[in-house]
């Protein structure tokens, strides 16, 4: 498996660490209810199809990426830097 890092180009899977659902990036507001925080922390979709994951380019540029892929076909649709293009 290879992932295309927006900064480094196509790289082997061993350079990356998988974190989980990209929904983790969308933190609730500081004043959110306990239930909202609990949902954000514990509830995950489990799609058969398109999903968005966080991957860390640990052995490369150190960037967090959002990888959009298909859990059924293993097709990778695209990768993007978390937080956009700034600070690269």
């Amino acid at each position: 498996m290879r992932l295309s890092c927006p900064l480094c180009g196509e790289r082997d899977r061993r350079e990356f660490t998988y974190q989980g659902a990209a929904a983790m990036v969308d933190r609730p507001a500081p004043g959110a209810t306990t239930e909202q925080w609990s949902d954000w922390l514990h509830l995950r979709d489990n799609p058969a199809g398109r999903t968005r994951d966080l991957w860390y380019h640990e052995a490369g540029c150190g960037a967090w990426l959002v990888v959009e892929r298909d859990t059924v076909t293993h097709e990778i649709f695209g990768t993007a830097l978390v937080g956009g293009d700034h600070a690269d």
Binding site: C8, R11, R14, E15, A59, G60, C61, G62
Partner: peptide, 8 residues
Amino acid sequence: EGRTLRTL
């Protein structure tokens, strides 16, 4: 020449 990268 002049290019650099991070890897393992």
